[in-house]
Design a protein around this nucleic acid. Sequence first.
RNA 1: GUGAAAGUAGCUCAGUUGGUCAGAGCACUGGAUUGUGGAUCCAGGGGUCGGGGGUUCGAGUCCCCUCUUUCACCCCA
Length: 427
Amino acid sequence: MKIPPVKGTRDFYPPQMNRRNWIIDGWKSASLRNGFEEYDGPIFEHLQMYQIKSGDEIAEQLFSLKDRGGRDLAIRPEITPTLARMVNQQINTLARPIKWFSVPRLCRAERPQKGRLREFFQWNVDVIGVDDVLADAEVIFCAVDYLRQVGLTPDDIVVKISSRKMLAELLIELGLEESQLEPVYAVLDKRAKLPEDVFEKLLAEQVSDGDRREKILSLMEAESVEKISEIVEPDRKAAEAIEEMSRLFEILDRMQIGQFCKFDTSIVRGLAYYTGIVYEIHDKAGRLRAIAGGGRYDNLLKQFGGPDVSATGFGMGDSVLEILLEEKGLIGKEVEQRSIDYFIAFADSKYRDKAIETASKIRLAGMSANFSYKTAGLGKQFKEAAAQNARKVVIIGQEIEAGQLAVKDMAAGQQQTVTAEEFFRKL
RNA sequence: GUGAAAGUAGCUCAGUUGGUCAGAGCACUGGAUUGUGGAUCCAGGGGUCGGGGGUUCGAGUCCCCUCUUUCACCCCA
């Protein structure tokens, strides 16, 4: 009986596994050079953990199970709750700022589509315990640092940045009720996806007053933080939020990534827990879903039973990223290819034992080596070596009787005869 | 959860109104090639035509169901 793979999952054969490792290794080294430490948690948690933040309806979108003790568990659909739990548990012993990153494997029971699978990897970078927008700037820098390092430029991607706090203060100043904010956010979030007239109609359903709608539309079109104050005269709290945004952009400029970043009030983000700066990284053409998204979530640790500690961070999934990198031709052929330091060929089956011995010595010295399981001619063995992308081929032939080996550099095509003793000494 | 399209070898695909329709290229294995490579030539293995049911003398082809994939919607932590 043939059993198919599970819907929305991927098999990683060696070439795809090499790609996956290349992406994840890039994430990890970017995190480390930005001063973040790696952590991880279990792949499942109590189901309840995911209901605190997002409510029951989200429980339908995750994989849940009952263990033999009747406990309701869920495979993690995100790692932020685990992070909050882990940090809360040791909050009094952790030195601040807490700069942590993780590359968890996550599962969500959603319908798969382009750039969205049921199992994926997500790079998470967070700073906990710092109120200052400097922390927001630093995580944004970390994301851009990686994306730039793999070859993406400001022509390819854009970090769209806004502020929940600023938007809320301005909307309230315009006369909206607190209770209207959520539904209005939902409409504003759709702006980029909808034709203008449909968007305006949806907005009119939420905001009946024409003048207010005008102002909101102008806010959405503001190209810079400065323009905001021209549209709505900010009160003290709004001015603070605007000031914070300006400062963020100053820091991003100082960090040399200003050309990747753009003020964009249409970035609202789905769920309610963001409290300040919010941002999404998109492909410049806007054809794909977001590459990454994040923001400040100052209330989360408290919601998980911890103290009032601020936090900010982002998540970047592997699937949209891989599609974009593929489209831009930034995943080189060599990423998928295997390679090996040495391939040991033997000219006659009587030298096979010597070849096994040689390969083992090379491996013990810390280099990679293979030899053929077959006793084929040298031509075949060279083909095998080439197929494995071997850098050098060592030939064991009659010269071994005089203590010598032939070593061929496959790229250069040059071959040298050296004594076995010298060869092993130089490994 | 809703809607649309697709599914033939490991991959990309051809297969006419139902009647030599089990095929090609690439990949893989072996040989040409018993001391030298990714080329070339030859040969070979590999398929219950996604699965199940139906119509028919006869189904890869038509009908129904189902699974999977892709795309969009809902949602997007």
